[in-house]
């Protein structure tokens, strides 16, 4: 058995102390490192193409949303911009950390929007950052309304978010807009569009799957309601 040199212990101790120090005092270096290792993290040219495509999609969205303009919010005056720092790395949740927190006036439960579309709510507020639960999280739930008639439903998050508990006699159609109707969230913030409808397993309600005009994994900046 070869005996380890004494210096190895000191080097190992130093490395442990260094990583511990960085983890406690500079966690953002870890977020940046993971962002760099991520396939989306350094694909700026691909992002630009993606954003241009999204821009066209959103222009089409705006034209479509004008049909329910009376129900849409006015210009988002009371919002603050925040950058996305990091994302939940496993497959059990869909959360992101943004660079605005208690010091900037962020409140738990506040709406988080991207290009005017509701993408989530503030779950936890830290001094300089805040954790956002997105509509793609299994625990995300939000009362919503659908289309110009304003049919009520409950948005249930997940990998494939859907609206449930919609009245059986509601006349739903693909591309109907789904918008927020919940306390604490600006009324009528768009969430997505209906892509398909079905009847609930107990046949008492309708359910609708949703289509989204953005890729949640490529979002770099959001607006948070004050």
């Amino acid at each position: 058995m070869q005996r380890k040199p004494e210096s190895n212990k000191w080097v190992l101790g130093g490395l442990i102390a260094l990583v511990l120090f960085l983890s406690v005092f500079f966690p953002s270096y870890g977020w940046r490192l993971r962002d760099y290792l991520s396939p989306q993290g350094h694909a700026s040219s691909a992002d630009a193409v993606s954003l241009a495509a999204q821009n066209e999609v959103l222009k089409a969205e705006i034209a479509k949303l004008q049909t329910v303009a009376a129900e849409l919010p006015s210009a988002p005056a009371n919002y603050m911009r925040a950058m996305v720092f990091s994302r939940y790395p496993l497959n059990f949740k869909n959360e992101m950390l943004i660079d605005a927190g208690d010091h900037e006036g962020v409140k738990a439960g506040a709406a988080v929007v991207f290009q005017g579309v509701l993408i989530g709510k503030i779950q936890t507020v830290f001094p300089d950052t805040a954790l956002v639960t997105t509509v793609f999280d299994n625990n995300f739930k939000l009362p919503v309304r659908i289309g110009s008639k304003g049919y009520d439903g409950l948005l249930e998050g997940g990998s494939y978010p859907s609206v449930k508990s919609i009245a059986r006699n509601a006349a739903l159609a693909p591309n109907d807009i789904v918008y927020a109707a919940s306390g604490g969230i600006p009324y009528a913030l768009p969430v997505g569009e209906i892509s398909a409808t079905s009847t609930s397993p107990d046949s008492l309600f309708q359910e609708a799957s949703l289509a989204f005009a953005y890729d949640a994994n490529s979002i770099q900046t959001v607006f948070v309601a004050r």
Binding site: K9, L12, G13, L15, I16, V19, L20, L22, S23, P27, Y29, G30, W31, L33, R34, L37, S86, R87, Y88, P89, E95, M96, L97, T124, F126, D128, T129, L131
Partner: peptide, 20 residues
């Protein structure tokens, strides 16, 4: 053990996504 502790801390440094 201590080498493992370093690997765990390094992985957590990369994986952690929030300051808590």
């Amino acid at each position: 053990f201590w080498e493992l502790i370093f690997f765990i801390l390094l992985a957590l440094f990369i994986v952690n996504w929030q300051p808590a």
